[in-house]
Design a protein around this nucleic acid. Structure first.
Length: 419
DNA sequence: TCTGGGGTCCTAGGACCC
DNA sequence: TCTGGGGTCCTAGGACCC
């Protein structure tokens, strides 16, 4: 059958766990984490204790991604727990992308462990789609040591749904003529974008499978679930038309957040976290050559209520101190006195920083800008701990908080076969 | 019992203007 | 004095993804 587009979805099986296993095998470890009950997860003592990825043997104990380490250990007392090392996963992901680029010029990174590849008009090079997918899958396995699932169809939605069929190390198709047979019998919550809030709303109305959804009058769905429902209904019919876009989505916002090891009960300790987060967010903005117009502070209290306050600033900024001061104002306005377990800072409505015209009117800002640049250079050269504000010094907090791997995490040599 | 971090997009209400 | 809509911007919160 001839289709106008052929799309692959490549998905690493148990990504963090597989990458951790491969790294450890290459560095002299004898047991393969993938062959024992194991998880990649955080430390419960610092309240980061959730399962991020699990091995197939761990899955047999009914351990779930996202549940707490404590729950997981109760299900399997011999569970092996390893902490996440994001710097390694970024390298492994990049190595996989490099291989995929040999099979098509049109690829799109969807996440650290998922990639879309447009195989349209590539049959003359690598054969029919199923043959090519097997070749790609085995290429990755032979060269990098981990397995992937590849889903094949005519659009990204169906390719992604196909990739979620039987795992690991499998190739599946979900072409339009296969929707009724392969997709409609699945529970509706397995449809992409049908999450934990929408599923009970559909079930309440007698919609249990993707087929049930597809065969419900779309005007009813629209009435119940608005535009999100209409999108889901279209997905249930396999309709989705976005392109595999190599240049990706433009960055819309930059944010960092932190669950604190102990509850924060006073505004001064919250401001210390805000300072550390401001350093990170502002540094990332400057690195991306962006300025932000909107700043948003978010809090989570000990009952897991989340709330946020945001502010559109008069002038777009990438200055650490402007961001810090604005965030403090937001914090003071919103905090109602309850204990806080999580605090976040996000910058959005980004614009290019190349028209930075405020210096004439704000000479102080220009000095801040020079200082920010100097600090960035020192941190780039000597690491994030090399320079810190006196208020952070002695607080026990890292001077820059968020997704950057710490120097300690970077002390290991690189994965040779992956570079 | 304990519950991460980084994102995108949508909705709804209020303010303000014409 | 009392009454419209429509459009845009801003803010808060929620839903979903990996």
């Amino acid at each position: 059958m001839a289709y106008d587009r052929i799309i692959f979805h490549i998905d690493v099986n148990s990504a963090y766990l597989a990458w951790e296993a491969v790294y450890r095998l290459q560095h002299g470890e004898t047991i393969d984490l993938r062959n024992v009950p194991s998880v990649v997860g955080g430390n419960p003592e610092t309240r980061h204790g959730i399962v991020l990825a699990k091995s197939i043997p761990a899955k047999k104990y009914k351990i779930l991604t996202g549940e707490t380490i404590i729950q997981a250990v109760m299900k399997c007392p011999d569970l092996v727990i390893v902490p996440p090392r994001y710097d390694r996963y970024i390298q492994a992901s990049a190595a996989m992308v490099k291989i995929l680029e040999q099979y098509s010029p049109k690829i799109q990174r969807y996440s650290i462990d998922e990639v879309f590849l447009d195989y349209t008009n590539m049959e003359c090079h690598f054969g029919d789609p199923v043959t090519a997918a097997h070749r790609i899958k085995d290429h990755i396995k032979d060269e990098l040591g981990f397995t992937v699932n590849i889903g094949i169809s005519t659009n990204k939605l169906l390719a992604k749904m196909a990739g979620d069929f039987e795992k690991p190390d499998k190739v599946h198709t979900l072409f339009p003529h296969e929707i009724k047979e392969k997709m409609w019998p699945l529970p509706v919550e397995e449809l992409f974008m049908c999450g934990s809030k929408t599923t009970p709303k559909l079930r309440k109305r007698g919609i249990y499978t993707i087929g049930d959804l597809a065969n419900t009058d779309v005007s009813l769905i629209r009435y119940w679930l608005k535009s999100h429902g209409v999108m889901l209904w279209n997905y249930a019919h396999g309709r989705e038309y976005s392109n595999v876009s190599s240049d990706g989505m433009p960055m819309k916002g930059i944010g960092n957040s932190c669950t604190t090891p102990t509850d924060l009960k006073d505004i001064e300790s919250m401001k210390l976290y805000i300072l550390s987060l401001s350093e990170m967010v502002a540094m990332r903005l400057r690195d991306a050559q962006k300025c932000a117009n909107v700043l948003c502070v978010s809090l989570r209290d000990t009952s897991f209520n989340n709330y946020s306050h945001q502010k559109k600033m008069e002038v777009a900024t990438d200055s650490t101190m402007v961001i810090y001061n604005t965030a403090c104002q937001l914090l003071e306005k919103m905090w109602k006195g309850e204990a806080i377990r999580h605090i976040g800072l996000r910058a959005s409505e980004l614009q290019s920083n190349n028209s930075y015209q405020t210096s004439i009117f704000y000479p102080k800002l220009e000095r801040e800008r020079t200082l920010d640049k100097a600090v960035d250079k020192i941190r780039e050269k000597y690491g994030s701990m090399a320079i810190m504000r006196t208020s952070i010094l002695g607080s026990g907090l890292p001077p820059v908080m968020g997704g950057v791997p710490s120097d300690e995490e970077n002390q290991f040599p690189m994965m040779s076969s992956i570079l």
